[in-house]
């Protein structure tokens, strides 16, 4: 029966992991906008991020 104790512990860990992931993503705003992603899927290219290091390489348009 000891195996049950281990299994309970493992399942609880797994559950807590998912709970943590859910709350983390929820705080990040993963679920706050449920419409715009359906539009983003239409675009062929992905928007790249400007990072501070790239600023010099890019030529300013405006």
């Amino acid at each position: 029966m000891n195996i049950i104790a281990i299994l309970i512990g493992l399942s609880l860990m797994l559950g807590l992991l998912f709970l943590g992931l859910f709350i983390w993503n929820h705080n990040k705003g993963q679920f706050s906008d449920d419409f715009t992603p359906s539009l983003r899927i239409l675009f062929d290219d992905q928007p790249e991020k400007n990072t501070k290091n790239h600023l010099i390489l890019k030529n300013k348009v405006l």
């Binding site: 239409l42 928007p47 400007n50």
Partner: peptide, 24 residues
């Protein structure tokens, strides 16, 4: 509109990220 505004960083190198919430 979402396409263009989320690529606003190409217009201006100092914009690091642009994100649109369509409904709002």
């Amino acid at each position: 509109c979402v396409y263009l505004l989320e690529r606003l960083q190409r217009f201006h190198p100092e914009i690091m990220e642009a994100r649109v919430d369509y409904l709002r």
